[in-house]
Design a protein around this nucleic acid. Structure first.
Lengths: 251, 251
DNA sequence: CGAATAATTGAAAGCATTCAAAGTGGGTGG
DNA sequence: CCACCCACTTTGAATGCTTTCAATTATTCG
């Protein structure tokens, strides 16, 4: 697998700073063949049901992944930013759709070639593993938001999370530019777009955030947002009032 | 990593039949050290926030994984059955709680030892990777259910999925024994336990299912349940009425 | 057989949705 | 460069699904 046609790509370089965490990003699988792709906003990379032959790496822009229901409703299951992989995990068909929410550049790899390369290079394997594990952690957080948070909690948590994840996207140190529309946020949080809009403006009226244009948001009062966010600081013991789940002896 | 104390365990043997899919389950990492654990119903294996030093493999019984919010609400993010791993993906702390919902036997591995062994044995690595990827796919399905399905759709889909996943758990070929309570189902689907109960009995009244005791469910009219389930048969093109998401040119 | 836990059922209340309409921003073409 | 237009966003009002509160019934285990 080390002598592929070669379009000499550095998988892993240009990894999103927030994810990279200051570690020196290595260059993996130098000779893995790939193809450049460019997508304009709203353009699809693939649909659920398509034959799953490729893995993609986002180089710039932003993507959203979503699943469709028969009734036409969609659940966005994640957003993808530069340095992140799409469609790791081998299946015969994609189980979700991938759509650009901004002008986006990607690299396309043949799934089997990438996974074969990963078997050769354990650093690449570690990277793919880490990527999937990260997706999993985010998916669990999403299920938590969608299932148990009320609308304000969801939106507050969303804003805090986006800020933490995409500090690179901020115009200056303060204002962040959301790449996704209200409708995208709604379909991500399991809310209606009207509800999202109402809550954004409710936060604005209460002085928690400032809005500028369609994309700009500035978090003014993070404390207030955190107070609305029911997120636990994963410390034990949880010590919840009457949480039946914890009555039993622990361990 | 091939000369550890050895408690000679076959990771992967006794894999759940439904997941194993008839393939001959290989024996991996024979000499990986592990510890046996037994949990009684409602007993916790770990809590979110605990130091994450171990990976667990379910041998018998059933576990549930859940996340807690400050307001005391919990979201079950998944159930674990024999042959499945818990807490793959290395982090310093567990991000969710793991609790037995029935008498359960597990094997406990040191995270670093297991991952080191996986680097040595690519079959084990493939197994872990597949496990995480499976968790990810199920997490996405959960987000979809919780975010976009109405209560009846959620419950119908849940029943169909449980049947498909845990055919081994069925008493005979027809009646399945749900290891989890109404409350567990509710916290999994993001509903109240009363709603789950109402819908179960609504299905019963309409002749879609039969109930026996607290655990027994028999799916009588799968067609009706599938009709309620908004799940798409992942075929393209989606051809949804006015799905804005698909207006853009595809690919 | 009895106590404790789980499940069911009913009624009232609430939060978010849906439907509807007006307003705003951003991009494009003249 | 500005006006115009389309799409996105905001806002209002009514509806409804699910939740919450409360009480009863059923099941399981000691």
């Amino acid at each position: 697998m080390s002598d592929l046609p070669s379009c000499i790509q550095n998988i892993g370089i240009e990894r999103a700073p927030s994810t990279c965490g200051g570690a020196n990003c290595q260059t993996y699988a130098r000779r893995l063949s790939c193809i450049r792709r460019k997508l304009s906003p709203r353009q699809h990379l693939f649909l659920q049901g398509d034959a799953q032959n490729h893995v993609y790496l986002v180089k710039s822009g932003a993507m959203c992944l979503y699943k469709l229901l028969r009734n036409g409703r969609r659940q966005i299951i994640g957003f993808k930013f530069p340095g992140e992989f799409i469609a790791l995990g081998h299946d015969t068909k994609y189980r979700f759709c991938a759509q650009a929410i901004a002008a986006t550049e990607l690299r396309s790899f043949q799934s089997h070639a990438l996974h074969a390369a990963a078997v050769e290079d354990s650093r690449l394997m570690a990277k793919l593993y880490e990527s999937v594990a990260g997706d999993l952690a985010r998916a669990y957080d999403l299920a938590l938001s969608v299932g148990q948070r009320d609308a304000e909690d969801s939106v507050a948590t969303f804003l805090l999370t986006v800020e933490a994840r995409a500090k690179a996207e901020s115009v200056d140190g303060e204002t962040l530019s959301l790449p996704m529309s209200r409708s995208d946020i709604a379909d991500y949080l399991g809310l209606s777009l009207e509800t999202v809009s109402r809550i954004f403006n409710g936060f604005k009226r209460r002085g928690f955030i400032e809005l500028s244009g369609r994309r700009g948001v500035r978090l003014v009062d993070r404390g207030a947002l955190r107070a609305l966010s029911g997120t636990r600081a994963d410390t034990r013991p949880p010590a919840v009032r009457d949480n039946r789940a914890l009555r039993a002896t622990v361990n």
